[in-house]
Design a protein around this nucleic acid. Structure first.
Length: 583
RNA sequence: CGGGACGUAGCGCAGUCUGGUAGCGCACUAGCAUGGGGGGCUAGGGGUCGGAGGUUCAAAUCCUCUCGUCCCGACCA
């Protein structure tokens, strides 16, 4: 392709409404153009990169004998009612009416459609296991789209679904996907982390996420540098740092208007960790209150608490709280609350005297011990935090932002049971199909690659997903010798099926170099007067900024060699994954 | 959904407080010169000032409503 025939609208300045690096660079490099908040057009360069990512994914899915299908984006709402997810999805799902006033929706994911397909067609254990996958657009009405391609309302996703007759088959399919995903992200040139995760709306048992560490990421992971432990903060566990506590006198203290931990801690001159935070929740179904206790310096992890209670919880409204304990939020405590279920975090020492709300407005009490209260349950219900102690090895934990690129789930039978997707076993009895679900965000791969690999001048594409492998820059197209040499090198590379772009614009060199760096193609070939004096051209590597001079007659061979070496370093890493023993 | 900010040419912005017929840089068009890091000169084209209503002799500017965009939070594969 010649630049003069291409559509590459680059920008000199950062767009005003972009905050994160990948967003800025993707707009500046002419990769994407916003249509509305969270909806983008992929311009030619981005689409070329997208197709390469898609191709890598297809090849790796083929390797594990997955079969590609294409499912409808437009769904009847009834199928979502079968699993209860019409309600669960809430405003996240786009709903619309057709001309006959029938309610339809735009699929935010496809478990229901897959399960429908399976219940119609799968009859026998002999037909299992199966791996079906799709690469297509999904729609989610994000409350707040942001960060360029990282959080959007319409996005391309690779999603696989596995159908199994036994849990062993499910484990096998899951492991196949874990390995395929490692190969996919490695082939895309990314450094990633595999972490334990919560399953959220998807339901099911085990789940792991493939994360790329980046300050732009919206997820937080807790990692231990020492032993490699890594979990999404949603589920991460830790040992809390413990402190030497002093004995607090048992008494009621007037604390006018002191509601927050900070205020009370300062007012009473008691360290935060010797206060207990009392949080009131209500079980959605029954309206029963539940009190959660965490140390003053800790945060409650609602997902963990949810898991222990086993039903949907919400925070108590201020009026409700007053009704339950007789005090406003800010003065709530665990003593004298008869019949209420109380769950205390394991980091609170039952023998430590602490201060907490007195269940009386403008009063706190001090000198209380958990061991004095009756029927307190202990559980891990706190957020692991930066600085906590690793429960595996005793190292120090840190918290990092990350971008979720892929998520693999063991779904189990949530969908097959709800929708009646069963198979007959050897004895002829029916069982629900055991399912798994495995997603990858394609746009996020592109954005994460840019987050990971860029410098002040622009993008530094991994060669496997770069829109073009090589850029041939003619310094001055009005110089006949330079121009013809440039075209000749370009033609030779093209004839060898190299993905090459020729910068044949009649512009000054500075403009061309700036654009080249911004767009970040891995190899730039410079045809300029300096090297030409010696019948040479230059080959510049975007990643190392290494610039070498090569004789014209050796040039194509040398370009191919560098290109090969860039591919090789990624392929070698990928090969190591396959060599790993079967999980 | 709560809090904050911003909508003026394709992009980045000034002008709004203090009302008086819309400007700068980049980009674009034509020409000249130039040719190794967004360089120079000359001449041009392009804007219902997000939209609607109001106040006023007069509104980008003041008032009301509305739409959109971004950030923080809540929520979220």
């Amino acid at each position: 392709m010649k630049w003069t025939q291409s559509f590459i609208p680059t920008l000199k300045e950062d767009p005003a409404d972009a905050e994160i690096i990948s967003h800025k660079l993707m707009i500046r490099a002419g990769l994407i153009k916003p249509l509305m908040a969270g909806v983008y057009t992929y311009l030619p360069l981005a689409w070329k990169s997208f197709l390469k990512i898609e191709n890598i994914i297809r090849e790796e899915m083929d390797r594990i004998s997955a079969q590609e299908i294409l499912m409808p984006g437009l769904n009847p709402i009834e199928i979502w009612e079968e699993t209860g997810r019409n309600e669960d999805m809430g405003n996240e799902m786009y709903r619309l009416k057709d001309r006959r006033d029938r309610t339809l929706c735009l699929a935010p994911t496809h478990e229901e459609i897959i399960t429908d397909l399976a219940r119609g067609e799968i009859r026998s254990y002999k037909e299992l296991p199966q791996i079906w996958y799709q690469i297509q657009t999904k729609f989610r009405d994000e409350p707040r789209p942001r960060s360029g391609l990282l959080r959007v309302k319409e996005f391309a996703m690779k999603d696989s679904y596995t159908l199994a007759a036994t849990f062993e088959q499910l484990d096998e399919s899951y492991d196949l996907h874990a390995r395929a995903y490692k190969r996919i992200f490695t082939r895309c040139g990314l450094e990633y982390l595999l972490v334990g995760a919560a399953s959220g709306l998807m339901g099911g048992s085990a789940s792991q996420e493939f994360m790329v560490l980046s300050p732009a990421g919206e997820d937080s992971v807790i990692v231990c540098e020492k032993c490699g432990y890594a979990d999404n903060m949603e589920i991460a566990t830790s040992k809390a740092v413990s402190y030497e506590s002093r004995e607090l006198e048992s008494k009621l203290v007037h604390t006018p208007n002191q509601r927050t931990i900070e205020e009370v801690s300062a007012f009473l001159d008691i360290p935060k960790w010797q206060l207990v935070k009392s949080l009131l929740y209500v079980i959605e179904e029954t309206g029963q209150p539940v009190m959660a206790l965490v140390r003053g310096d800790h945060k409650l992890n609602e997902a963990k608490l949810n898991g222990i209670i086993g039903s949907v919880l919400r925070q108590a409204e201020p009026e409700e709280a007053k009704g339950f304990v007789g005090a406003d939020i800010g003065f709530i405590g665990p003593h004298d609350v008869e019949s209420m279920r109380i769950i205390a975090d394991t980091a609170i020492d039952p023998e430590m005297t602490f201060a907490t709300g007195a269940n009386q407005n403008d009063y706190h009490i001090t000198g209380l011990k958990l061991s004095q209260l009756r029927s307190v349950e202990y559980a891990d219900i706190r957020m692991a935090d930066e600085g906590d102690i690793c429960s595996q090895c005793g190292g120090t934990l840190s918290m990092k932002n990350s971008v979720e690129l892929g998520h693999i789930f063991k779904l189990g039978t949530k969908y097959s049971k709800a929708m009646g997707a069963t198979f007959l076993d050897e004895e002829g009895s029916a069982h629900p199909i055991i399912m798994g679900s495995y997603g990858i965000g394609l746009g996020r791969i592109m954005a994460a690659a840019i987050e990971l690999y860029h410098d002040d001048d622009g993008i530094i594409w991994p060669i496997t997903i770069a829109p073009y492998d090589v850029l041939v820059t003619i310094i001055n197209v009005t110089d006949e010798k330079l121009n013809s040499t440039g075209h000749q090198i370009y033609q030779e590379l093209k004839s060898k099926s190299i993905d090459v772009l020729l910068d044949d614009r009649d512009d000054r060199p500075g403009v061309k170099f700036k654009d080249a760096d911004l767009l970040g193609f891995p190899i730039r070939v410079t045809i300029g007067p300096r090297a030409m004096k010696e019948d040479c051209l230059e080959i510049y590597r975007r990643d190392t900024k290494e610039n070498i001079k090569v004789k014209l007659e050796d040039a194509v061979e040398k370009i191919l060699e560098i290109r090969e070496s860039l591919f090789r370093s990624i392929n070698e890493k990928t090969a190591k994954i396959t060599e790993q023993p079967k999980i």
